[in-house]
Nucleic acid binder design. Structure first.
Length: 227
DNA sequence: TCATTAATTGCCC
DNA sequence: GGGCAATTAATGA
């Protein structure tokens, strides 16, 4: 039996009564997904919507030429797979666990009624979609106008926002992240990312090792990006 | 220890 | 900047 405490503190559920929340969570099922396996794939019938409780998810699309593009990462407490909210009956992208993940899943058939009954739920879903739309727009502009250095810096700063964790050395991006991953996010190659990270490491902006990036000077990295 | 996967670097376009 | 290859490093079975 799932506990309402898992979600009761989230703004999505602000106007659910205790009973309504209990009823809602009774209809959820917990889904554990191992690192590097799919929650769902692009084009699949969207039978559930999800709330990520723990972990990080990569949203991935495959370009016509077969290259993988990381569209974004999803962090804990975000809704995902909300195809119904944008009037689709299939998922628009692949959702892959970047680490071992736990999420709650509800049947998509509950979506319309839930949105109707609970403004807090509807509003936070809209906000989530709105934020993602803004991110996409930012990235379109970046890809069209910015230098590679700026795009890579922007990708790292975005991840920092979502998955930053304070450590003694700096702020760690708390997701296993290869050079390839970073290049799949910023439209460049792993070689260029490797070279950039090496030079940034020399000038003290970041520290990186295998699947790990720590930002040691966020201000300088941000300035680099704003130039 | 071995096989696999990731990262770095140099050379060339 | 990207593509490629050679090499080295880290990791996990």
């Amino acid at each position: 039996m799932l506990d309402v405490a898992l979600i009761s503190h989230l703004p999505n559920f602000a106007d659910f009564s205790r009973v309504e929340l209990e009823d809602f969570i009774r209809q959820a099922s917990a889904r554990r997904v191992e690192k590097n396996t799919h929650f769902f794939s692009e084009g699949e019938t969207a039978s559930s919507f999800y709330l990520l409780l723990d972990g990080y998810i990569r949203v991935v699309r495959i370009s016509p030429s077969g290259e993988q593009i990381i569209v974004r990462y999803i962090a804990s407490h975000e809704l995902f797979g909300i195809a119904a909210a944008i009037g689709r009956d299939t998922y628009p992208a692949n959702a892959v666990a970047a680490v071992d993940c736990v999420a709650l899943a509800w049947p998509m058939s509950l979506w319309p009624d839930t949105v109707k009954r609970f403004p807090s739920f509807a509003n936070s879903a809209s906000a989530t979609l709105g934020n993602r739309l803004m991110d996409v727009q930012d990235r379109v502009i970046e890809l069209a106008t910015e230098q590679v250095e700026h795009r890579v810096a922007a990708a790292l700063l975005k991840l920092l926002e979502q998955a930053g964790k304070e450590t003694e050395e700096g702020i760690l991006i708390d997701i296993p992240l290869t050079r390839q991953d970073v290049s799949d996010m910023s439209g460049t190659t792993l070689h260029t990312v490797s070279r950039l990270l090496s030079s940034w490491e020399q000038s003290g902006l970041v520290k990186s090792s295998r699947k790990k990036v720590i930002i040691t000077d966020k201000v300088k990295l941000t300035n680099l990006y704003n130039r």
